[in-house]
Each structure stands twice: as C-alpha cells, then as structure tokens.
Simulated assay, not measured.
Amino acid sequence: MTSPLLRPVLAAIDLPDLPGHYRGKVRENYDLADGRRVIIATDRLSAFDRILAVIPYKGQVLTQTARFWFEKTADICPNHVLEYPDPNVVVGRRLDILPVEIVVRAYLAGTTGTSILTLYRQGARQMYGVRLPEGLAPNARLPEPIITPTSKAFDGGHDEPLSPAQILEQGLLTPGQWDQVSAYALALFARGQALASERGLILVDTKYEFGLDPD
C-alpha cells in the first residue's frame, strides 16, 4: 500500500505564463512586471555548488523554515516577503542583491575552504580582518561572534574570503552599507542564538544575504 505522505518530487517547475524565469540551484524564480518576484522552492538538494538529489517535501520544509525566521526577526531587519500563497512559494519584493555575503561565526568550525577552522589549521591567524589567538582547539567557542564576509558568487562561481577593508577598497559596499549590514547580521545572529538556546541547541554559524530596494 502506498503511503499518503509520499508524492512525486518537485524536481523542477516551468510556468510559461510568468515572465523573467531564472533557475537557481534549488529555487525557480520569476520576475513580474510590477516589481514582485515569485520564488518557488523545489525539492532539489544542493551542496558545495552541486545538485545531489531530490527529496520529497524538501522545498516545503525549506520555505516554511525561512518563513519562521523571517517572522521571528522582522523587528530587527526588514525583509522582502509579501505573501506565502503556497507551502513551497514566497512572493516578495525584487531587490538588488548586494555582492557580499555576511557569515557570522561563533565557533572555530567548518569544512569548506573559506571556513575559519580550515584556514586556522593551515596556519592562518589573521583572516577576514580578524586576528584569532593561538591555541584554539577545533570547534572551540570564540571569545565573541565574528563576521567573516565573502564575495557573492553568481552563475556557479565560488565565494572568496574578504576583509572589511577589501570590501570598501573594491567598492563592493559603501561604508554606510557595511556598517548597516554588519550590525544587522550580528543582531540577527544574537536572536538566532537566543532562540536556539531556548531549545537546548547552539547556533554555530550562519550566512546572511542582503539586498536594496531599487525604488
């Protein structure tokens, strides 16, 4: 007997009546003429810039998880959300994405080439404009959360580590924009830590992406 919970996976979706289609690793996006963007989370699973599999309900879980956090942090930082017409869909304002990703880290952890543990094991102590002390053990809690920004790679490219000085020198953000997004990121991370702690969890690190309203 087939379980009622099983359903065909949503590997891709094509809505020819909607304009401005863009396919990301996981989401299908449509830009409407009135400035709204329709974002549909598929069941594709992506890691390390590769699509690995499709998992039933993965897109729904992704959208509803994002909804939880957008609603829990709306008092800290404005977001793009206008409505959720379907469990897999969010309709939001189209923004101009800033070319910097803001990663906040509270622990010496990670496995990617841009993680502070990877760099620390390679002997680096100065990274992302921050100097880490000697003698830290893997996965140790840092004295305080730090911001480790990276470039925002598009079209399958790879993110690269940046320092605040490099961000400003390269004109990726203005000083005012950097001050605002870094303050937002630290405040959002603190809210995440508090909510995680209430449930006996720790928030090790997370990434934030910001955009500007073109209007």
Score class of each variant (00 low, 15 high):
121 R>S: 07
190 A>K: 14
22 Y>I: 12
51 I>A: 00
106 A>R: 12
97 I>M: 13
172 L>C: 10
57 Y>F: 13
116 I>Y: 09
38 V>L: 14
68 F>T: 07
114 T>W: 03
16 P>Q: 05
178 W>M: 13
158 H>E: 12
131 R>D: 08
83 E>N: 10
185 A>M: 07
107 Y>A: 04
143 P>S: 09
36 R>E: 01
142 L>N: 11
134 E>T: 15
120 Y>L: 12
170 Q>H: 13
152 K>M: 05
94 R>Q: 14
35 G>K: 08
27 R>K: 06
39 I>S: 07
187 A>K: 15
68 F>Q: 05
151 S>M: 04
152 K>D: 00
7 R>L: 14
161 P>A: 09
57 Y>V: 10
148 T>H: 03
208 Y>Q: 03
169 E>P: 12
140 A>W: 12
162 L>Q: 02
198 E>D: 11
7 R>V: 14
25 K>S: 02
54 V>T: 15
198 E>P: 03
163 S>R: 09
170 Q>V: 11
25 K>L: 01
89 V>K: 05
166 Q>K: 15
125 R>M: 08
27 R>A: 01
90 V>Q: 11
205 D>P: 11
67 R>F: 06
136 L>Y: 09
101 E>T: 06
24 G>Q: 00
181 V>E: 07
22 Y>Q: 14
87 P>N: 05
95 L>P: 05
201 L>H: 06
34 D>L: 12
193 Q>K: 15
106 A>L: 07
132 L>G: 06
85 P>D: 05
167 I>C: 03
55 I>G: 08
3 S>V: 09
15 L>Y: 10
61 V>D: 00
182 S>Y: 10
214 P>K: 10
48 F>E: 05
197 S>T: 08
168 L>N: 03
107 Y>E: 02
192 G>W: 07
153 A>R: 09
71 E>P: 10
19 P>N: 06
6 L>V: 07
133 P>T: 15
189 F>W: 04
54 V>G: 06
35 G>R: 13
18 L>W: 04
158 H>W: 02
143 P>L: 08
145 P>R: 13
118 T>L: 10
185 A>R: 04
107 Y>R: 06
181 V>A: 14
196 A>G: 10
57 Y>T: 09
7 R>W: 01
107 Y>P: 03
81 V>W: 04
162 L>E: 01
189 F>S: 05
170 Q>A: 13
56 P>Y: 08
146 I>K: 03
53 A>P: 06
198 E>Q: 15
126 Q>E: 14
178 W>G: 04
38 V>D: 03
75 D>A: 15
141 R>G: 11
111 T>L: 11
1 M>Y: 12
94 R>A: 10
39 I>V: 14
67 R>C: 03
70 F>T: 01
163 S>P: 00
58 K>H: 02
185 A>D: 00
212 L>A: 06
102 I>Q: 04
111 T>C: 09
93 R>V: 08
4 P>Q: 09
35 G>Q: 07
59 G>A: 02
75 D>T: 13
141 R>P: 08
80 H>Q: 04
164 P>A: 08
119 L>S: 03
88 N>I: 07
153 A>L: 07
2 T>Q: 15
65 T>C: 11
58 K>G: 01
94 R>L: 11
202 I>P: 05
212 L>C: 12
56 P>Q: 06
28 E>H: 10
82 L>K: 10
80 H>S: 05
100 V>K: 06
4 P>Y: 08
89 V>G: 02
69 W>R: 01
12 A>H: 13
177 Q>G: 00
152 K>A: 02
165 A>M: 05
183 A>L: 11
